[in-house]
């Protein structure tokens, strides 16, 4: 198994922490993992992205320009990363703020209305967990138990009471993700 993921959006959307939880979850499953953030101006507002690699083998390059999966959360990232999905790969996006829908016909495209759903939840900060849920539904590479364990390990203890809220958000994301375009990839239903 080798899954190369880019998660891209605005700073503050929880892009980096979503990647971190995936990486922790991968570790729980005895995978090799790498987490390479964009750092610098992105961290201070503007666009942010993180490359996460989950693999059964030793990971070579932590920096890539082609991905199995792109999770795209704003228009700038759509412009930059839509073309970087490998043919037959997966693109998951939140249509909120997207002015140009993805155009590719050789990849599998899924929508998750995470921003709109998050506004209805206890706290809208669960946005990134809704997106994570959508991803795990399409690509169940990590079990929900290991993701929750990863969440526990990556959150400071004072925030552990929020884990159930995050779990709900992950499950909600799994429910609301919809298929836009499929091309060669059958996600488990």
């Amino acid at each position: 198994m080798n899954e190369e993921i880019i998660i891209a959006g605005f700073g503050g959307q929880g892009v980096l922490s979503m990647g971190k939880i995936l990486a922790y979850g991968g570790m729980m499953q005895q995978m090799e993992v790498s987490w390479m953030p964009s750092y610098g101006p992105e961290m201070r507002g503007g666009t942010a992205n993180v490359t996460v690699i989950l693999s059964d083998e030793r990971i070579s390059s932590p920096i890539l320009n082609r991905f199995d999966t792109a999770i795209i959360l704003n228009q700038q990232s759509m412009d930059k990363f839509e073309s970087c999905v490998k043919p037959g790969g997966v693109l998951i996006y939140d249509p909120n703020g997207i002015t140009r829908e993805p155009q590719r016909k050789d990849i599998n495209i899924y929508r998750v209305e995470a921003a709109s759903e998050a506004s209805k939840m206890v706290t809208s900060k669960t946005f990134n967990m809704i997106v994570l849920g959508a991803y795990l539904k399409i690509k169940p590479v990590i079990s929900i138990e290991n993701i929750l364990q990863g969440l526990k390990d990556s959150l400071p203890a004072r925030h552990h009471h929020l884990i159930p809220v995050n779990e709900d958000a992950i499950k909600r994301g799994m429910e609301i993700v919809t298929t836009v375009e499929t091309h060669g990839y059958a996600s488990p239903s």
């Binding site: 971190k20 570790m27 993992v33 790498s34 987490w35 390479m36 953030p37 750092y39 990971i59 932590p62």
Partner: peptide
């Protein structure tokens, strides 16, 4: 900056 900023096991 890559090796410093990236996370691995």
């Amino acid at each position: 900056g890559i090796i410093g900023q990236m996370m691995e096991k």
